[in-house]
Computed example of a mutant assay.
Amino acid sequence: MSADEDKYPGDSGRRRFVKGVVGGATLAGVGATGSAAINSVTSSTGAGGGPTESMVIENTDGPAPRGMPQVPIEIDGDELKGVWPEVKEKTQGGVTYEVAETDIGGMSYSSEWFHFCGMETYEAIRPSHEPAEGNYFVTGSNPTYEWQSEFGETDRLTVDMFSDYEEWGNGIGVSGLGKPASANWRSMETEKSLVVNVIRSPVIEQLVENGEAQGADGQTYSVDDSTQSWLQATAPKGFVAWLNKCTHFCCVPKYKGLGGSAKFDAADEVYCPCHQSVYEPFSIVPTLFTARPRPK
Rank of each mutant, 00 (worst) to 15 (best):
T234R: 04
G178N: 01
W242A: 13
N197I: 13
G106Q: 08
E101R: 03
G259R: 03
G260R: 07
D164M: 12
G259I: 01
G48D: 11
Q228N: 01
M161L: 12
K81V: 01
M188R: 12
P281T: 11
V71I: 15
T33W: 10
C246Q: 02
T234W: 02
S40Y: 13
S35P: 01
D164G: 13
L27N: 06
C251P: 00
N59K: 14
K245A: 14
T220G: 14
V270H: 02
T144H: 12
P65D: 11
I172H: 05
V196C: 11
L177Y: 09
G10E: 15
P69K: 11
G260L: 04
Q148E: 15
G260K: 06
S12M: 08
T139A: 14
E112M: 05
V174T: 15
L207K: 03
G48T: 05
M1N: 12
S175W: 03
E79H: 02
K88H: 12
S175Q: 12
E89T: 13
E130H: 05
A47S: 13
G20N: 08
Y109R: 08
I38N: 07
T144W: 06
V208L: 11
P65Q: 07
C272K: 03
E79G: 00
P9S: 09
S229C: 00
A235L: 04
W168F: 14
G178S: 06
A32S: 13
P72S: 10
G259H: 00
W84M: 07
E212G: 00
Y255S: 09
T190K: 05
G118V: 14
P69H: 12
T121Y: 14
E146R: 12
Y8V: 05
S141F: 13
K90C: 06
E150C: 06
G178C: 06
E86F: 06
Y145H: 09
T60A: 01
N197L: 15
A47K: 01
I57V: 15
S54H: 04
D265T: 13
P295Y: 09
Q148F: 13
G106I: 06
K237L: 13
G94K: 04
R14T: 13
E5I: 00
Y255A: 03
E101T: 12
G94R: 01
Q219I: 10
K245E: 14
T121F: 10
E58G: 07
A3L: 06
Q92H: 13
Q228Y: 08
F282A: 07
T26P: 01
S163M: 04
E209P: 00
T102Y: 00
I57G: 13
E123Q: 15
Q276S: 09
F282I: 06
P236F: 11
F162H: 11
P72F: 06
V30K: 04
T190F: 05
A47M: 07
G169H: 06
A235R: 03
R156L: 12
D78Y: 07
Y165S: 09
A266S: 13
A25R: 08
D4S: 14
D160L: 05
D217A: 02
R200E: 05
T144S: 15
K81R: 14
Y145P: 10
D268S: 10
V174R: 06
P202H: 02
T33S: 15
A100T: 02
S175R: 10
I38S: 09
D265L: 07
